[in-house]
Amino acid sequence: MNTLELKKKATELRKYTWQLIYEHSNGHTGSDLSCADILVALYYKVMNQTPENVGSPEADTYIQSKGHAVEIWYEVLADLGYISKKDLDEGYSKFNTPFIGHPTTHLRGMEFNTGSLGHGLGLGVGVALAAKMDGLSKHTYVLMGDGEQAEGSIWEAAMAAGNYSLDNLTAIVDHNDLQISGTTDSVMRSNPLDRKYEAFGWEVVEINGNDMDTVVKALSQPNTSGKPKLIIANTVKGKGITVAENRADWHHKIPSQEEYETGIKQLDTQLEALGND
């Protein structure tokens, strides 16, 4: 896919996610919408992973440490054929369903259960270190939230990754400056993240995480530093839907019918504009 096609795909998947959350009255709306561009860049352009090779020794591994933003990941996996779109739409958040509110290994494409914040980076370090020891060429990607940076286990994992020079590990922080109870600066200040990770032996890149071209370039650039890479992706919580943008209360708020219809119109307008480029 070229950049325009990737932008269209991210907008389309935001629309599907907005619909899923509204129809089932469950989900983490703001967090889903902020990281859509990152997931689309990874799955449709960057990663060596398909529904056929996922979990194999040489396939890249993706770990979503911010597991609450699972709805956008479901939509990506359904669109690519890892899971059934029909089963997702009918079964999400229902009793005895695998389509629950956090990632589960019961579904193809989800290699780890996540959602208890702070665990994903440690899992990624383990996968990347094992790949190094086995002489594999695979790469490991971990998506974290910025509020999650307050977890102590994150920093143990960061120290280990730097210690073992895991240049086959890329971590991305979805840096939207908001978490469930307010701004990250007011709840637990983690900035400056760049200098902290650099002190632990990481290469750090800071980008606009909602600009597709920039995201693809940052994720695709070969790592020649001999260090693990951290991408600080500055994003907008609730990206694409005005009522939800930069609002902490949309961390897991469900749209009303009026909000839903307005959001759909905005996303359709964005898709029309991309179609005319």
Rank of each mutant, 00 (worst) to 15 (best):
A78T: 11
G109V: 09
R189M: 10
G118L: 04
S93R: 10
L169F: 03
Y62I: 11
R247F: 06
Y82G: 01
A157C: 08
D277W: 13
L230D: 03
L77M: 11
E52K: 15
E23L: 12
I154C: 04
Q149D: 01
I83E: 03
G81N: 12
L271V: 15
T3W: 02
P255H: 08
G67Y: 03
T262K: 10
T50S: 10
G238C: 07
F112I: 09
S34A: 14
V70L: 10
L178T: 05
D37L: 02
K8Q: 15
G118Y: 03
P51A: 06
I21P: 01
K86V: 14
L107V: 10
Y22F: 13
L271F: 12
H252C: 08
A78E: 09
T114W: 02
Y197P: 00
H119P: 00
M188F: 14
Y92D: 00
F200K: 01
K239R: 10
A150S: 12
Q266H: 13
G101S: 11
M47A: 05
A157S: 06
P222K: 11
G81Y: 10
T269R: 11
A41W: 00
D211H: 09
I72R: 01
D60T: 04
D213K: 14
K7W: 05
G209K: 02
I180A: 11
V76L: 11
Y164K: 06
W18F: 15
G124K: 03
N26Q: 10
L143K: 02
E71P: 02
T242N: 14
G122N: 08
N246G: 04
T235H: 03
H139S: 07
T97S: 13
G238I: 11
E12Y: 08
Y74A: 05
N53F: 10
K94C: 03
E272N: 14
G101E: 08
I231R: 02
Y197W: 15
K94Q: 13
K15E: 13
S220H: 03
Q266E: 15
M133V: 15
G275H: 15
G67C: 03
K7L: 09
A161Y: 06
C35H: 00
G147N: 02
T242M: 10
I154T: 06
I172N: 01
G263A: 09
P98H: 07
G118E: 01
W250Y: 14
A218F: 05
D32C: 14
G152C: 05
P228K: 00
V142Y: 00
N53Y: 07
I241P: 01
Y16C: 13
G201V: 00
D79H: 12
G145E: 02
Q270L: 13
V204H: 00
E5G: 14
Y43H: 13
G30L: 06
A41Y: 00
H106F: 12
A69Y: 06
V205W: 06
T242V: 12
D174N: 14
T17I: 07
Y74K: 09
G240T: 07
E261R: 07
A244T: 15
K196V: 07
S181M: 13
G115C: 11
H102V: 15
E71S: 14
K239E: 03
P103Q: 11
T183Y: 05
W202M: 00
K85I: 04
G122Q: 03
S116E: 07
D213G: 07
E111W: 06
G238L: 08
